[in-house]
Amino acid sequence: MGIAMDAREWWTVRRQDMSMASMPSPPLNSNQHRAEQYSHDGVKAGAKAATITFIASAIPVLMGARAIPWARANLNYAAQAHIISLVSGAAYFVVADKTILASARKNSFEKLASHVEFPL
Results as ranks from 00 to 15, higher is better:
Ile3Asp: 13
Met23Asp: 08
Ala67Asp: 03
Asp97Thr: 09
Ile68Glu: 06
Ile83Val: 12
His82Thr: 12
Asp97Asn: 05
Met18Glu: 14
Val87Pro: 00
Phe54Met: 07
Ser39Met: 10
Phe109Ser: 11
Met63Asp: 02
Thr53Val: 10
Gly2Cys: 05
Ala58Ile: 02
Ala21Asn: 14
Lys111Ala: 13
Gly42Asn: 07
Met63Thr: 04
Phe109Gly: 01
Met5Ser: 15
Met18Val: 09
Phe93Asp: 01
Glu9Arg: 13
Leu101Ala: 15
Arg72Thr: 04
Trp10Val: 10
Gln16Ile: 08
Leu28His: 10
Leu28Gly: 06
Thr51Tyr: 03
Val13Ala: 15
Pro69Phe: 04
Trp70Cys: 00
Val61Arg: 01
Lys48Met: 12
Gln32Pro: 01
Ile59Asp: 04
Ala78Asp: 08
Leu112Trp: 09
Ser30Asn: 12
Phe109Glu: 14
Ala71Glu: 06
Phe118Val: 09
Gln80Met: 13
Arg8Trp: 11
Gly89Pro: 02
Gly2Lys: 14
Ile83Gly: 03
Met23Ile: 06
Ala78Lys: 03
Met20Trp: 04
Val61Leu: 04
Ala56Thr: 07
Leu75Pro: 05
Ala71Trp: 03
Pro24Met: 07
Glu36Trp: 10
Ala113Gly: 07
Ala81Glu: 05
Ser19Phe: 09
Gln80Pro: 02
Glu117Val: 01
Tyr38Asp: 11
Lys48Tyr: 13
Gly64Asp: 07
Ala102Asn: 14
Leu28Tyr: 07
Gln16Pro: 01
Ala35Trp: 06
Ala65Glu: 05
Ala71Cys: 07
Ala45Gly: 04
Phe118Arg: 03
Pro69Arg: 11
Gly64Met: 06
Pro69Val: 07
Thr53Ala: 11
Pro60Ala: 02
Pro60Ser: 02
Ser85Gln: 03
Gly42Cys: 07
Arg72Asn: 05
Gln37Ala: 15
Gly64Leu: 06
Ile55Met: 08
Met18Cys: 08
Phe93Leu: 07
Leu101His: 10
Ala50Gln: 05
Ala58Val: 00
Lys44Cys: 09
Ala50Pro: 02
Ala65Lys: 03
Leu62Gln: 08
Val43Tyr: 11
Arg34Thr: 10
Arg66Leu: 08
Met63His: 00
Ala96Trp: 09
Ala35Ser: 12
Asn76Lys: 13
Val87Arg: 01
Leu112Ala: 10
Val13His: 13
Met23Tyr: 10
Val43Pro: 01
Val94Leu: 12
Ser114Tyr: 03
Ala58Met: 08
Lys111Asn: 11
Asp41Met: 13
Trp10Cys: 07
Pro24Thr: 06
Arg72Leu: 01
Asp17Met: 11
Phe118Ser: 01
Ser108Gly: 05
Glu110Ala: 15
Val43Arg: 13
Phe54Gln: 02
Asn29Asp: 15
Arg8Lys: 15
Ala102His: 08
Thr99Gly: 10
Ala56Arg: 00
Arg105Cys: 04
Ser25Phe: 09
Gly64Tyr: 05
Ala81Thr: 12
Leu112Asp: 05
Met5Ile: 14
Ile59Ala: 12
Ala45Pro: 04
Leu120Asn: 13
Gly64Ser: 10
Leu101Phe: 07
Asp97Met: 05
Thr53Arg: 05
Gly42Tyr: 08
Ala102Glu: 12
Pro27Arg: 03
